[in-house]
Amino acid sequence: MSELQKRQIQLEVLRYNPETDTAPRYQTYSVPCLEEWVVLDALNYIKDHLDPTLSYRWSCHMAVCGSCGMMVNGEPKLACKAFIHEYKEGQIKVEPIANFPIERDLVTSVEDFITKLASVKPYLIPKEDKPVSAGEFKQTPAELKKFKQYTLCINCMLCYAACPQYALVPEFLGPAAISMAHRYNQDSRDGGRDQRQEVIASDEGVWECSFVGACSEVCPKHVDPAGALQQVKVASTIDWYKEHLMPWMKK
């Protein structure tokens, strides 16, 4: 480890201990960072060498698990994808992910998102019951392409932290949950769209979205939730006209 590659970074970290603190506060740590480090490495350095009481979530360190979402200089980022060399000033502010209640330090309560995600039934609801002996459900590359990008979602909730509508209207189902519903709706093997529509075509569902597009900008996996939501709006609008102007189309 050559000293030349090292840079002393001031990490301003939000701290909150519910047992002793009445309000969150900031604590600054001076961390000798290597240029190829990410913010998560700096946090791990603090935990290992400077302050073992710092709490934060992380697991994979490779943008797969979605645990280390936090605000880095005010922007929703995965700490494992936020490279130190992108922050030239030598000072980085790290806060828990926005729009979720703080539990301790950088750890937030994700209850709201988990409840919403579960409510859209984000799993395959097979169109037809087929015994295993009948073989696999086949899918063409074109059918796979319709939903593949939405399968890349890692539930990191950066889109919820970026969404100004979710900040304003906490009841809003939100970008990731609706994108996941869309992912299964677009799957040729799935038959659960009607059940999901009951939730996502409601006022608190897709219709709270005003297409700001911040979700797609911050998404670390390029899922493009904003695009998914617009497609859901078009499909739900067609549904509405079918149900109200052509009631005989109803099953």
Binding site: Q197, E198, S202, E204, G205, W207, K233, S236, T237, Y241
Partner: peptide, 12 residues
């Protein structure tokens, strides 16, 4: 949850 009537305006 009831389905929304917003598609009228959103469609236009």
């Amino acid at each position: 949850m009831a389905k929304s009537n917003k598609p009228i305006f959103w469609g236009l």
